[in-house]
Design a protein around this nucleic acid. Structure first.
Length: 620
DNA sequence: GGAGGAATAT
DNA sequence: CATATTCCTC
């Protein structure tokens, strides 16, 4: 009697009907075991000696799913022979005697388990696990005929189960259980604004594995991916799975019926040092994918609903690393632009993107990068388009007063018109390698009307969106006009604690006042500050520098907005309270500004003091 | 408590 | 480097 796929339907109540070969020389023992097995709806065939059993197996391959073989003191050789012969049949050894060497030998010969008599119901009830295990871990691709339906039925069951879970999850759209398998580490899992892989979207279902101490409850699923029926034709979902052997086995099994593009990779370590990496993908129209990798964090195991709860801390699920593919990024940019830069916050972006599986954290992280690149790129674009802007500024805007930042002695590339564009650059005419950001329709980072920055004659701004005015080569530039007749050169300096040098500094009160007043009255004009590149090694002085560490220095809220918006200054909002006139140091502190270097996010961030210095000199 | 976002870790 | 995570503030 050989199982076929047709048996599947009859196996909905698996493991009932499991065919058990019972080989026991002790007839009374055999009867007892048989009775218990049959009480569990297992189909039992009893044999008294191994030859009969082996004959049956050989004559009717695939007749049994599992064997329970007694090892006695006298018939041990027969039991070993059975083991050696029936290698394809998951065989559980059982014995009254407790002999370690015998147990070892049995295991070495391929026994799946060694149980001591008496065999309780509990022990017998779970023998099906060996069948499933064997079905999914058969060496090579060869699976005995009897195991095929087992495997398929398990797959089918799990698929059905997952679908049921999905229906339940549909009632709880924000907290799908399968999602929790992916995002169990996400502290935002309960936040309504966050999105998770929505199992409601017909996609490749996740392979799930739940490990429970002692009792293994492997649950897998695999279902065909349907391409139609996307809610809005745009939604994407995260595709993920676990990489344990069973899962992979199922995935292999399902490969022929699944159109899948995502790569799933996972590596695991021990229960203690659990570590994994996974690739996840968000498919859209079979085209783009978002691959996620993820690293588990030991301190944050599974914390969520349903299935995971049952599995306990051991069922450590991993977070997902999102691969911001061009398409995904495009969606992101579109969302940002739709919202407007001001309103573009992670949760809203997330909503607009409609990418399942993406979390607010993912978006926030990307947004951070986005903003940084934008700040960095915009100024260079402006500079590229208005190469003489600074000169114009100096001549026309501050005809009588040069307010600017001194470049750092380490300044290297702030205003250079770098030939290439970073990948976040705008799309026009980029060399290969930037296609991600320059694909047709990609909005790019071009300044839009959302950037309410007054051109200010194209003054350059740097990574922080602040205008950058470099000093002219000539330290004492001769301005063609000096309509005000004032002493020129109120100079803003970022002294980083370094002493003022070279100039005889005599702050004329009126000059200082004028600088301050103008800054306050014209907040839309740039503060004469430079971007990160402009500064030398960070030192800290002045306001906000009472911390010894560079950590957690933050822009004052009133400044923050302006740091992200290119030109405006917030002197007005900072107010005079932030203005500190250093009576005897020729400085007026306007406020604090956090700057960083250009090398990356948040690195070497520091607080600078804006100081207006009356530079009492000028050749004019 | 949760969100945004800078700073930091991986 | 890109992304995740942590930490801080609001």
């Amino acid at each position: 009697m050989v199982c076929t796929a047709n048996d599947l339907h009859g196996w909905k109540d698996f493991p009932k009907g499991l065919r058990v070969l019972l080989l026991d020389g002790d007839s009374s023992s055999a009867a007892e075991i048989r009775s218990k097995l049959e009480a569990m709806d297992y189909a039992v065939s009893t044999f008294c000696n191994e030859n009969e059993a082996l004959t049956e197996i050989l004559n009717k391959p695939g007749s049994f799913h599992v064997a329970i073989v007694e090892v006695g003191t006298s018939n041990s050789q027969g039991s070993f022979k059975f083991l050696e012969t029936a290698k394809d049949l998951p065989t559980i050894m059982t014995s009254n005697i407790h002999c370690l060497s015998t147990m070892m030998r049995c295991i070495a010969l391929g026994a799946v388990e060694f149980l001591r008599k008496p065999l309780s119901e509990d022990k017998l009830r779970n023998i099906w696990q060996h069948v499933v295990h064997k079905a999914f871990n058969a060496r090579g691709s060869i699976i005995s005929e009897s195991l095929k339906p087992v495997k398929e039925s398990v797959v089918s069951m799990l698929q059905l189960q997952l679908e049921n879970e999905e229906s339940e999850n549909n009632n709880l759209p924000n907290e799908p259980e399968t999602v929790s398998l992916v995002h169990e580490n996400d502290p935002e899992h309960s936040a309504g604004s966050d999105r998770y892989p929505a199992p409601s979207t017909p996609q490749l279902k996740q392979g799930l594995r739940l490990l429970n101490d002692g009792e293994c409850q492997d649950q897998m699923n695999c279902s065909a991916e349907k391409e139609s029926g996307e809610q809005d034709g745009e939604s994407k979902s995260v595709e993920t799975t676990c990489g344990d052997s069973i899962a992979e086995g199922i995935l292999q099994e399902c490969k022929h019926q699944i159109t899948r593009k995502s790569l799933i990779k996972e590596e695991e370590e021990s229960a203690n040092g659990f570590k994994s990496e996974r690739k996840m993908s968000l498919d859209q129209h079979n085209k783009d994918s978002l691959s996620n990798k993820d690293r588990g964090s030991a301190e944050n195991p599974c914390k969520s609903s349903g299935l995971n709860n049952a599995s306990g801390p051991r069922a450590n699920r991993k977070k997902i690393k999102v691969d911001w593919t061009p398409d995904l990024h495009k969606k992101f940019v579109q969302a940002v632009e739709q919202l407007g830069v001001d309103q573009a916050i992670p949760s809203r972006i997330l909503e607009l993107m409609k990418v399942e599986g993406l979390t607010r954290h993912n978006v926030a992280s990307h947004l951070q990068k986005y903003r940084m690149h934008k700040r960095h790129i915009l100024p260079k674009e402006e500079e590229r388009r208005w190469p003489h802007a600074r000169e114009l500024i100096q001549r026309s805007y501050y005809p009588y007063r040069q307010v600017m930042a001194f470049p750092s002695y380490h300044s290297n590339h702030v205003l250079s018109t770098t030939p290439g564009y970073p990948t976040w650059g705008q799309p026009c005419g980029h060399p290969a390698g930037y296609q991600m950001w320059s694909s047709p329709g990609y909005p790019g980072w071009q300044p839009t009307e959302n950037w309410n920055w007054k051109p200010y004659s194209g003054i350059t701004a740097d990574a922080w969106g602040c205008p950058v005015a470099t000093p002219p080569p000539n330290p004492h530039p001769a301005f063609p006009h000096n309509p005000s007749g004032l002493q020129p050169a109120g100079v803003v300096d970022y002294s980083y604690g370094t002493p003022q040098n070279s100039f005889d500094l005599h702050p004329a009160e009126e000059v200082i006042d004028k600088v301050v007043k103008e800054a306050i009255s014209k907040p839309w004009l740039p503060l004469p500050v430079s971007g990160p590149d402009f500064f030398g090694p960070p030192t800290y002085s002045g306001l906000g520098n009472n911390k010894s560490s560079t950590k957690h220095r933050r822009v004052h809220p009133t400044w923050k907005a302006d740091l992200s918006a290119p030109v405006r200054t917030n002197v007005d909002t900072v107010g005079k309270d932030a203005i500190d006139v250093h009576g005897n140091s020729n400085k007026v502190t306007l406020g604090r500004l956090v700057v960083g270097n250009a090398s990356g996010a948040g690195q070497a961030t520091s607080v600078r003091t804006l100081v207006v210095v009356n530079k009492g000199c000028c050749s004019c």
